[in-house]
């Protein structure tokens, strides 16, 4: 029962984030919404693991937690430089 409530709350959050991703207006709103969707997906995987009594879902959630960060950073880097191979030394000068 309690996991059903948690799953419902997470799905509501999912829907809100999808609406924000569709509305924009800037690319950063969309990236933020994508990041939120990612975290919500992790939580949904964990809760579904409990609902279905299959703890293997947690492993997928762990992998997704790592992918979510890398994905967000890669997308941000792409929109800043238009190039994922941009070197670190080009950035050092201004920090």
């Amino acid at each position: 029962m309690m996991f059903t409530i948690a799953a419902a709350a997470i799905i509501v959050a999912h829907i809100c984030a999808v609406i924000r991703a569709l509305k924009g207006p800037t690319v950063f709103d969309r990236v933020l919404a994508a990041n939120t969707i990612g975290t919500a997906a992790i939580m949904l995987l964990a809760v579904m693991g409990f609902l279905a009594k299959r703890p293997e879902f947690l492993d997928i959630g762990l992998t997704y937690a790592l992918l979510n960060l890398i994905g967000t950073l890669a997308v941000l880097k792409w929109f800043r430089y238009g190039d994922l191979a941009h070197g670190e030394e080009d950035e050092r000068g201004d920090t």
């Binding site: 409530i5 948690a6 419902a8 709350a9 997470i10 509501v12 959050a13 999912h14 829907i15 809100c16 984030a17 609406i19 924000r20 800037t26 950063f28 709103d29 933020l32 919404a33 990041n35 939120t36 975290t39 919500a40 939580m43």
Partner: peptide
């Protein structure tokens, strides 16, 4: 947890610009 998750998601829709939306997202995340 469910309450804060939903509140953060509502904030994601209500807040006026990117930075303030980040605060709402960090509440839920």
């Amino acid at each position: 947890g469910s309450f804060f998750y939903v509140v953060g998601a509502i904030g994601l829709l209500r807040m006026p610009d990117v930075f303030t939306r980040m605060h709402a997202a960090s509440t839920s995340d």
